[in-house]
């Protein structure tokens, strides 16, 4: 490892909330001897092991996580005021403790956005994103009977840009960071990816309308182009996709 590891003693302010309706509050816990080589979630594991052993009434902290390699999009957390913590282009599970100093107080909060109600502690409900996908985030082809993969050449530039958009992991950091609670970056990533590719272009208009409609229904806010979403997006999805969504949506509406 580049520099030898150090250990940290930290004070954690963790949001505890029993369920959606309950009133939440910050609880303060101390953890000791955390290696700078450990990941943030490993630090949370250590905290939970400690809380289990101490048998605290509120129990271990509930938080979402799964792949722990920055791709499943399940981990969330607002750490010291930033979605996915104080580092750029990563998810919480990729954040390492070397980003912190001995003696730091770390504030850990759940995503707070109207679209993502809290389930428990740091765990939030992001099924709204699934619902938006169900409204139109697909190409309507069924299995079988499709043309050869090389039948339609696609410019590398276009394919690359589609891939940039497709890199979205659906973690919700965009809406969680947005002062308007807007899901536009998420919606635009899918609309843009599929509008760029000839396969998706066929129903681009229908898709843009359906996904925006669902997004509005679910109570997400309106984009005011602050650009906070793209800065906090762990996959650096660009707001230029929002411009493309706007364009697609306008086009779709002008046509009919």
């Amino acid at each position: 490892m580049a520099e030898g590891h150090k250990s940290l003693n930290l004070t954690l302010r963790v949001w505890r909330q029993a369920n959606r309706q309950a009133k939440g509050e910050f609880k303060v816990y101390n953890v000791k001897d955390i290696s700078t080589e450990a990941s943030f979630l490993e630090m949370m594991d250590i905290l939970n092991e400690q809380l289990i052993n101490e048998q605290v009434p509120e129990g271990p902290v509930a938080f979402d996580h799964d792949c722990r390699e920055g791709i499943c999009g399940m981990c969330s957390l607002f750490i010291n005021g930033r979605a996915h913590g104080p580092d750029d282009d990563i998810t919480t599970c990729q954040l390492h403790m070397r980003k912190f100093n001995d003696g730091d107080t770390i504030t850990i909060e759940p995503w707070r956005s109207g679209g993502f109600p809290i389930i428990k502690d740091l765990m939030v409900d992001r099924t709204a994103y699934d619902k938006i996908m169900q409204a139109g985030g697909f190409v309507s082809v069924s299995t079988g009977g499709v043309p050869d993969a090389n039948a339609i050449p696609i410019s590398k530039v276009i394919a690359d840009e589609a891939m940039d958009a497709a890199a979205c992991i659906g973690c919700g950091a965009c809406a969680a960071t947005c002062k308007n609670g807007s899901a536009m970056l998420f919606v635009s990533a899918k609309v843009s990816q599929l509008a760029l590719l000839p396969q998706g272009k066929v129903e681009a208009a229908k898709r843009a309308k359906a996904m925006v409609k669902k997004m509005d229904e679910l109570g997400f806010g309106n984009c005011t182009n602050t650009g906070a979403c793209e800065l906090e997006c762990p996959k650096s999805v660009s707001i230029s996709h929002i411009a493309r969504l706007n364009r697609e949506f306008l086009k779709a509406n002008i046509k009919d």
């Binding site: 190409v139 082809v141 499709v146 050869d148 050449p153 696609i154 497709a166 990816q193 599929l194 396969q199």
Partner: peptide, 19 residues
């Protein structure tokens, strides 16, 4: 591969536009 391309999976491509 055919199925995935039809679904809009952005596979890597050469400059000629093929996979």
């Amino acid at each position: 591969i055919d199925q995935c391309v039809a679904q809009g999976v952005p596979f890597a491509r050469e400059y000629g536009g093929l996979l």
